[in-house]
């Protein structure tokens, strides 16, 4: 692997790691592990933990993929590895 490809891959891994941490937090952590304490906070008639488990996590997933696609396309150009 040449130098740019190596740096490109490192930048990619960094981005993916950050996004996967958020992925874990909004679903497993908020929706399951911390659901009881979060449920003491109410939004409308729903506990916050319940909301994350049934709605909030899905909205977050959408944002994650959007950010990923946008950032990666920018990285492709930055490291000059984009498609013609």
């Amino acid at each position: 692997m040449n130098k740019t490809a190596e740096q490109y891959w490192k930048a990619n891994i960094r981005l993916v790691s950050i996004l996967l941490v958020i992925w874990f937090v909004c679903s497993f952590l908020f929706g399951i592990i911390l659901v009881e304490p979060l449920n003491t906070i109410k939004i409308g008639g729903l506990g916050l933990g319940f909301w994350f488990a049934q709605n909030g996590s899905i909205y977050t997933f959408l944002v994650l993929i959007y950010v990923y696609a946008k950032r990666m396309n920018a990285l492709d150009v930055e490291f000059d590895v984009h498609e013609d």
Binding site: V16, L20, W23, S27, G31, F50, Q54, S57, I58, Y68
Partner: peptide, 20 residues
Amino acid sequence: YGASVFLMGWTGGYVLLALL
């Protein structure tokens, strides 16, 4: 609430699919 596993499970996989 227990059925949240389906809601999160069948959508969160797309994050893995897109990123990995």
